[in-house]
Write a protein that binds this DNA or RNA. Structure first.
Lengths: 229, 229
DNA sequence: TCAAAAGTGTTAACTCTACACCCATGC
DNA sequence: GCATGGGTGTAGAGTTAACACTTTTGA
């Protein structure tokens, strides 16, 4: 049994949002220091001593992008630890997924000279993201898709009150497919505790006003939503 | 941006097996050194410098339990990094899930004075497992159940050639529920590429001989197997 | 001949998809 | 009125759970 080798651990956050003009976007920051200074990367940084891993992810997201919502639902995507993935030495990254409302304003800070929302397709272009962050983003997108199937994760993309159409647009953006509006309506309103009616309605352009809901207490959707219809 | 604090990283492996008398079991080792010397724990240990994380998990499993199958399918369960989880300091554990055939012989080695299969219910008893390994085991069991739904992971519990009943017993053990034999048969044999008939049959006690299959090339089951029926 | 396990057939219940249709609003 | 999006109704297709039934063996 050899003496253990210490290593460095970072947390990186894939923060997704569905934005009116650009569709599904992820938050990226421009790196303010080496390595990959000046390139775009996922917000993240080193875990502090005695800091829980999820708290580290929330802290780094806040420091580098100015995002600090009241409650952040963070899902572990996975650990990325290929030996040469970071030129600084052995750095293992723990990736996290979260979703933010489209209204979320971002601003570079700390070690990030800039922070911006990018359509995910842009970020997945070769050599756009530093390190192995494109791989992380791909895995996070897959996880997001699975979360939508059987959890209330989709509501995390939306403001406190939202319509069923708002929620459907989130699903369509993440799943990259259109859904039947009527069937979707029935399905999500039929899950006990998923959506809590507010009694209020909202008018958006033309058409009948839509009922406003808030997220209910249910966190799982059973049976899962399917990606057809 | 404070100077990064190095930390220690371990890999821990939840190796599951469905055993004739004990049902669903996990592999545990008796710790040969402090902390928790003499207690049972999941096999695992420190990640070496320049060692990929999955390789570290496979290596530790081999060193501590004597298990070294030609191919090991390892699934990441998650990272566990509560600040006080290990008295040696800041140690983050990355947990992995794998499945082994019931025929797998184990023997303590390296830093483990003993290695044994335990029914999972035993290992989940309070204070049975060292560190936060009971939590890790619970999460790994949940992941195993999900893997069975939509992947070929179940075949990893079985020897190269197996019957549909063998596979069903795996599902019943992991899901903790009985399944209709006829419906299960139809479902799994109907998934294209999941099972490859060998043309041979095997007689087990009474009853009609069962056809032997090997795992096919398909890794996903769509639509997923459901836990009813 | 009986019991047991493997494997197939059958059907009623259920679910889902596709689309029709009504509702409530702005223009 | 008419277009548009919200929301409900519904029929046909497809799927599934439950269980009957046949097959093939050991005892």
């Amino acid at each position: 049994m050899p003496k253990p080798t210490p290593l460095l651990m970072t947390v990186d956050v894939v923060a997704l949002s569905v934005r009116p003009d650009d569709g599904l976007c992820a938050l990226a920051v421009r790196r303010g220091s080496e390595p990959h200074k000046g390139r775009w990367a996922l917000p993240g940084g080193f875990v502090d001593k005695d800091e829980p891993l999820d708290k580290a992810a929330a802290r780094e997201l806040g420091e580098e992008t100015g995002v600090s919502p009241r409650s952040l639902e963070l899902h572990q995507v996975g650990a990325y630890g290929a030996p040469k993935r970071d030129p600084r030495g052995r750095v293992v990254s723990l990736a996290w997924l979260t979703a933010l409302p489209a209204s979320t304003e971002v601003a570079g800070g700390d070690d990030a000279t800039d922070a911006r929302w990018f359509p995910v397709a842009d970020l997945l272009k070769p050599r756009k993201l530093a390190f192995d962050h494109a791989t992380i983003l791909k895995d996070a997108l897959a996880l997001a898709g699975r979360e939508l199937e059987d959890s209330s994760f989709g509501t995390r993309f939306l403001p406190r009150a939202f319509t069923v159409s708002d929620l459907r647009e989130v699903y369509e953006a993440v799943w990259e497919q259109e859904l039947d509006a009527g069937n979707f309506q029935r399905k999500v309103t039929g899950v006990p505790g998923l959506l809590k009616p507010t009694g209020r309605t909202v008018q958006r352009g033309r058409g009948r006003p839509a009922a406003l809901y808030t997220a209910g207490s249910a966190t799982t959707i059973s049976p899962p939503l399917t990606r057809v219809g």
